[in-house]
Design a protein around this nucleic acid. Structure first.
Length: 702
DNA sequence: ACCATCTGTCATACT
DNA sequence: GGAGTATGACAGATG
């Protein structure tokens, strides 16, 4: 088995390649980590391997003092390595094969070991020897902090903080050995086991009452010990180490081999991967590139680590609610690695990949399926539980506890003057009654009352028989294939049916007794104060639907295609009241949307008209300006013509050499372009024109 | 208290 | 004829 150096490259994201390859069914050494500048590339590679993106962890942050090497250098255990001198090992070859470019800007660090192996940073440092010394200041904590993004060169440049940064070429000068004490392999293994056990126990602490977890830890510990022994046997003669036995770095590698094997065992223990799925698998077996996607999926699938069992999922809703919003974000890294709540917290932060590599992060070793499952069950379900859900839970629980009777509540809010007709608002009832000949329900604003005329005959059995979960034929109703040709998935629409969709008015109305019935003189505001916030936020139809235990949401009723809607009405045992209410809700909902659209269109029309007005006004102004400019030009032309006219006459002389009086003569343009001087009194006489022609000709000659 | 605006609803015509 | 849509009108809620 190859022992591979921890290998980092600086960049934007970090891959715990061990996990990746292990997820891919490959056995690799633990302390091989890859940091890619483009996590997206990594994700693509993972996808090609069939690993869902949830199964790898792009960790970018490092402790500011986290043992970075020089950019463009490869460091191992605090010493710079020349990548060219590294053995042409399987690792790099396969890394390239995987399509992951070798990035010369590599660094060696051990902090991930901290996060994996122990909360004890010092001990973890010892695991990888010199490399850990460079990151001793903050390896554990920051290593788990996936959001700090300690970029090289940024504040607190890790290169400056590392111990003995080595420039390229200095490698042969045998830089000072790190001061971290490296315990012997056996002792380290024992420590690792102990640390692992502690952390594992801490991880499962919240469900430690389950004995199977204890048994699991014990069994895995045994497996770890066994694997450790195997690793020691194997690691003594690594392939490429034997080729470079004179290299002191290899000695250090050998020193770290035990640790690495221990870590690998740790990883294997954590991942609980079947041995035969890893053993004997070489990197060369990696299913490569596009065609291997399916295979990758297969081995990802068969990598069926059920580590979620080791993680407590006994999270109460309250705890989940408390944890959900805050724990999605970064936490104190030290606390992450030291606090036993880690797995518990992880439940609420699976989308934060950085945290998945935290010290007790067992989820990081979950199989993709487990990860996905956990993502859904722990985070999405919990975090997506909105307030309404809990309100409804509270409603139901309160109703169950307090013996809530929907009929009582319905009558509680019954408007005394609303006895017939469709009305949605109490004060609106009077007018609606007169306008509507409908004999449908009458609800006051709280909507708990309806069909008052029929209400007396509206038995409680009707409610129970028609409302969600109480259908007379639940199996029939709940397991129908609701898909229809219209493409509307009724299963989606009826998803509430599959839940306990019994509607209860929240019985938090104080003194919901007969006293509450004597409210006719009280305003809606006063009465609304006695409604819970949930009910206040409900629309009238929603409250009515609640009151009548309509097993569908208003949204469903309104948006459902007519075919599905009719099918729904036919398939569910609904009372006439309920059917009538559902139809009213649908009609009102449709009309409400129509009204909204209508108003929107009207507003658009108004806005368009206003725009047209603005445009026309602008156009009018433009035309005005153009007209003024034309007039101005005309006037200029007139003035020029006038000036020219007088200039011409000033130059004209009659037969006697006297100036031509412009008051007596005028210039006239002929069709052929010639200009004639015409006496004004004779201007209209063609005969005189002819005479003037001769004159003008003579004048022109002059 | 008054007013403007928004919104839901109803009635009606139309598709 | 039923369902949906469009729209004017009305009334309550709200700022």
């Amino acid at each position: 088995m190859k022992y591979l150096k921890p290998w980092w490259s600086d960049g934007g994201g970090l891959l715990h390649l061990t996990i990746l390859l292990s997820l891919a069914g490959l056995r690799v050494d633990l302390d091989f980590y890859l940091l890619l500048p483009q996590p997206a590339l990594l994700r693509d590679e993972l996808l090609l391997l069939g690993c869902p993106t949830s199964s790898f962890y792009a960790l970018s942050p490092f402790p500011a003092s986290g043992g970075w090497g020089h950019a463009g250098q490869l460091h191992s255990k605090g010493r710079e390595l020349d990548p060219a001198t590294l053995p042409e090992g399987l690792l790099f070859r396969e890394v390239r094969t995987l399509g992951v470019p070798f990035i010369p800007r590599t660094r060696v660090d051990a902090w991930l070991v901290h996060s994996v192996a122990a909360g004890d940073a010092d001990g973890a440092h010892g695991l990888l020897g010199a490399a850990a010394s460079a990151s001793s200041a903050g390896g554990v904590g920051a290593s788990v902090d996936g959001s700090s993004q300690a970029a090289p060169g940024g504040g607190g440049d890790p290169r400056e903080a590392r111990s003995g940064p080595l420039a390229a070429g200095e490698e042969e000068k045998a830089p000072a050995e790190p001061t971290v004490e490296v315990p012997d392999a056996e002792g380290r293994a024992s420590e690792e086991i102990q640390v692992l056990r502690e952390r594992l126990e801490a991880a499962v602490g919240y469900s430690s009452q389950h004995e199977e977890n204890e048994q699991r830890v014990s069994a895995q510990e045994e497996s770890l010990q066994q694997n450790n022994e195997d690793e020691n046997n194997i690691a003594n003669k690594p392939d490429w180490e034997s080729e470079k036995t004179t290299d002191s770095r290899n000695e250090r590698h050998l020193n770290g081999t035990d640790t690495s094997s221990c870590l690998e065992d740790l990883f294997q223990l954590l991942s609980s991967q079947p041995e035969n799925s890893l053993e004997g698998t070489s990197l060369g077996d990696i299913p490569l590139l596009p065609g291997s996607s399916n295979d990758g999926m297969n081995f990802s699938a068969h990598y069926n680590v059920n580590f979620s069992q080791a993680i407590s999922h006994n999270v109460s809703l309250h705890e989940a609610m408390l944890l959900c919003p805050s724990n999605r974000f970064r936490r104190d890294p030290v606390a992450r690695t030291s606090q036993p709540q880690e797995p518990f917290l992880q439940l609420n932060s699976p989308t934060n990949p950085e945290q998945t590599l935290s010290g007790t992060n067992l989820t990081g070793f979950l199989s993709p399926a487990d990860n996905q499952m956990r993502n859904v069950t722990s985070q999405d379900l919990l975090c997506d539980l909105d307030v309404n859900v809990f309100d409804e839970i509270n409603l139901m629980s309160l109703a169950m506890e307090e013996g809530f009777d929907p009929m009582e509540v319905s009558q509680l809010f019954e408007e005394p003057d609303s006895d017939s007709g469709l009305s949605l608002n109490s004060s609106h009832c009077s007018t609606s009654i007169t306008k509507s000949n409908s004999s449908h329900s009458v609800y006051d604003e709280e909507g708990a009352t309806g069909y008052s005329s029929d209400l007396e005959s509206f038995s409680h059995h009707d409610l129970e028989g028609a409302v969600g979960g109480c259908s007379p034929e639940p199996s029939k109703l709940c397991h129908m294939d609701h898909r229809n040709d219209s493409g509307f998935d009724e299963e989606v629409a009826f998803q509430h049916i599959f839940h306990n969709h019994t509607y209860h008015l929240q019985p938090t109305v104080p003194e919901s007794t007969s006293e509450s019935f004597s409210w006719p003189g009280k305003s809606e505001k006063i009465r609304s104060r006695f409604l819970s916030g949930t009910d206040r936020n409900l629309s009238c139809d929603e409250r009515r639907a609640k009151a009548l235990h309509i097993p569908f949401s208003v949204e469903e009723i309104v948006r459902m295609p007519v075919d599905s809607f009719n099918r729904m009405l036919s398939r569910y045992y609904l009372t006439d009241l309920q059917v009538s209410l559902i139809r009213d809700i649908r009609r009102r909902g449709k009309n409400k949307v129509a009204a909204q659209n209508c108003r929107k269109r009207k507003l658009d029309v108004i806005l368009n008209l206003e725009d047209d007005i603005c445009n026309l006004q602008a156009k009018k102004e433009t035309l005005k300006r153009e007209g003024a400019q034309c007039n101005k030009a005309i006037n200029i032309m007139k003035q020029k013509l006038h000036d020219l006219y007088h200039d011409v006459f000033s130059r004209l002389r009659d037969d006697h050499g006297r100036p031509v009086n412009p008051n007596q003569y005028a210039l006239q343009c002929s069709h052929d372009g010639s200009v004639l001087i015409v006496p004004k009194e004779l201007g209209t006489s063609g005969h005189k024109k002819e005479n003037q022609k001769g004159t003008s000709k003579s004048e022109r000659r002059n």
